[in-house]
């Protein structure tokens, strides 16, 4: 008795879900993808130009890479502070999320947003609201790979 009522509810929910999926506007996938590709590509091209510059200055490949990250992160922080990065992100979607500038944007945006709750538990704590999970998973995977190498040599 109870189970059949539950089942009926499930069917109704499923029917409604189908109706919702028919009605819901689809994301403009093609347009979004072109934007993501072009902007993401341009951000990486900018990264390459900066990388080439540092390598030209005689930095090692590894150091040049680090320096490039720092510059890209600085630019993203500046653009976020000026209120431009979210405008870019509205169009570029993943094109401005996937590059390291998107990581920096998430950090800076969270930090700025909580300024009014103070600089310790506002900015200081919230700065990691998006960056935290990213680093946790990045560290976890790399440590596991390191341990595998320790064990299996």
């Amino acid at each position: 008795m109870n189970t059949s009522a539950d089942q009926l509810k499930k069917i109704e929910a499923q029917e409604y879900d189908d109706l919702v999926n028919q009605t819901k506007p689809k994301p403009t996938v093609l347009k979004n993808c072109i934007w993501a590709f072009v902007i993401g590509g341009l951000i990486c091209t900018l990264g390459q130009i900066i990388l080439n510059f540092f390598m030209g200055q005689g930095l090692s490949k590894l150091d040049a890479g680090s320096a490039t990250s720092v510059v890209m992160i600085f630019l993203a922080a500046l653009f976020t502070g000026l209120g431009w990065y979210d405008v870019l992100g509205k169009h570029a979607g993943a094109g401005s999320i996937v590059p390291i500038t998107g990581f920096a944007n998430a950090i800076v945006a969270s930090a700025m947003e909580y300024k009014r709750e103070g600089f310790i538990f506002g900015v200081g704590a919230r700065i990691f609201s998006v960056a935290g999970p990213t680093l946790v998973f990045g560290f976890a995977v790399s440590v596991v790979i390191g341990l595998i190498k320790v064990v299996f040599g």
């Binding site: 403009t28 998430a106 945006a109």
Partner: peptide, 17 residues
């Protein structure tokens, strides 16, 4: 927005719905 979704300056694409 800041309570339910994202910080104002984060570059996020809002869904069509």
């Amino acid at each position: 927005e800041r309570q339910f979704r994202f910080p104002a300056e984060q570059g996020v694409q809002r869904s069509m719905s």
